[in-house]
Computed example of a mutant assay.
Amino acid sequence: MSDAIRLDHVGVAVRSIAAARGFYELMGFEVGAAEEIAHEAVRVAMVPMDGSRVELIEATAEDSVIGRFVARRGEGVHHLAVRVDGVDAEFERLRAAGVRMASENVKVGAGGHRYFFVHPESTGGVLMEVVGE
């Protein structure tokens, strides 16, 4: 694996960040402040873990992607996120290679990071978020 790509975070869909944070704090982790991402209709809080993070994701609308996910499947792992150098170039490279994208373009998310999603059909069944500069 290239040094230019690494696990950034695991996204976990929860009904309530306030309720979920109790477990992580009990384990000794510090849960960051919740941040709202209006265009995704979610609130997120990061839990740093040894160079990576768990992203707790709470829907702010029942008809959002996360709201529908929790209603259909319950709480749990929603996606894996990898960090790359040059997120725009990686978006174009994957699309040109015929990878099915779940995002139409690169967006700005929590903490100002830039990201896009790759459809599970192209990744062996796992929704993959690609983040970077």
Rank of each mutant, 00 (worst) to 15 (best):
V42F: 06
A89E: 13
I57W: 00
V87A: 10
E90W: 00
N105I: 01
V84H: 05
E40T: 08
A34S: 15
G76V: 10
E62F: 07
E55L: 04
R95V: 04
G109L: 05
A45D: 07
R43N: 11
E104V: 08
V87P: 06
H113M: 10
G98L: 07
V108R: 10
E25A: 08
E36I: 12
D85M: 04
V99H: 08
I57Y: 00
V42Y: 05
H79T: 01
R83Y: 03
G22D: 15
H113N: 12
L56C: 01
G112A: 08
A45Q: 04
E36N: 09
G74L: 14
G28V: 02
L94P: 02
A89L: 02
R72F: 02
V77K: 07
M46G: 02
A59C: 03
A102D: 09
L56Q: 03
S52C: 11
I57S: 00
V99I: 15
E40V: 06
G109T: 07
F23K: 09
G76A: 09
E62P: 12
E35P: 09
D50F: 11
A41F: 12
F29Y: 15
A34F: 08
G74W: 14
P48A: 01
V108Y: 02
V70H: 01
E36D: 14
V106P: 02
V87K: 10
A81H: 00
R43C: 10
H113C: 04
D50I: 12
R21Q: 14
R95L: 09
R93S: 09
A41Q: 15
R83P: 00
E35I: 13
G109Y: 05
R95M: 06
R73D: 11
F91W: 10
